[in-house]
Design a binder for these strands. Sequence first.
DNA 1: GTCTATATTACGATAGAC
DNA 2: GTCTATCGTAATATAGAC
Lengths: 197, 197
Amino acid sequence: MARAAQAPRAQYDVQRLLAVAVTVFIERGYDGTSMEDLARAAGITKSSIYHHVESKEQLLRLAVDRALEALFAVTEEEGVSQGRAIVRLGYVLGRVVEVLCAELPYVTLLLRVRGNTETERWALERRREFDRFVRGIVVEAAADGDLRADLSPALVERLALGMINSITEWYHPGRVDIGELKATVVTIVGAGLRGAE
Amino acid sequence: MARAAQAPRAQYDVQRLLAVAVTVFIERGYDGTSMEDLARAAGITKSSIYHHVESKEQLLRLAVDRALEALFAVTEEEGVSQGRAIVRLGYVLGRVVEVLCAELPYVTLLLRVRGNTETERWALERRREFDRFVRGIVVEAAADGDLRADLSPALVERLALGMINSITEWYHPGRVDIGELKATVVTIVGAGLRGAE
DNA sequence: GTCTATATTACGATAGAC
DNA sequence: GTCTATCGTAATATAGAC
């Protein structure tokens, strides 16, 4: 539970510093993290941090930008434009699980952003844009008759993405198999949407 | 988007002050909220707030305690001890949706707590306790053969509660019917767990 | 129950030496 | 690239009048 001193081996560049910062941001919250906290975790002084970045907010911006890039990359993949909507939906949701696990700390931070600063408001808007992309596919699936008639597409999108996003609350690499995780999510959502009874 | 001045009609007691504080905590985050922010939102001064509570942290404690009380009350209800586990699971999940909507701001705050202070660590531990309660029912349902064999009970519990908890991210009273919301959640999860294909 | 005024500390960020 | 020292501000909380 105690945060031990970090190995001060190599010197820092922005990416290494960012990795440390994101870890601390997740542990203590962005607002709850002081530059002094970051300095301690990185094993350097506050001043040294300012050699690499202009501000604390820039660290946040770099982090959420990385997460957003990874998510929007999915919207350009072949799997999102091939085949029936219900199949494409399964593809996208599975890929989001994978991106979330691959870029865990960055996506985790993105999902915790609330909108206090300009950076946070921009991140929230881009997140909503991604959500709308997914919702579009759910709407298509509904039009295809592949969604139970008693389910609202908008609600389904929110609950499905909410389930997936909640993975950041507990996932640790290695403790759960990503394949199983992805399969479980797609099974629950997939069966739930078409579901028999 | 701008936070207008609050109606300063009545004088404050702890509960009224708490309601205002929780709203601001959700909007700006607990750490991101200053006592000055609270004072402005409440239409009184910082000093006046300290007449009602000992500290900012006490406001957080009162809030998360209210949420936890509401959640744990569900574990004492008849519906959690009657009938097949899979039925009891549906009951509990549905009730959590209802509690979440009924106590929205308090539960929202509870779910955002990260563990910086003693209060937050205590809240996290009680949350985990509730999660274990739900997991126990999922395990029973699996033993009854009412859960697809390829699904891990622990994973199912996390994803199901994660889906439900994510409702706090977007729910606003009146904008969505609670009955529909509850039905959609129980349908998706229920069909997903037993699911045919 | 609310106010003005203030003590005290912590914070983000900068200056300038090495 | 990192350091020590420090500036200016904003934070939590208290004292004491009304």
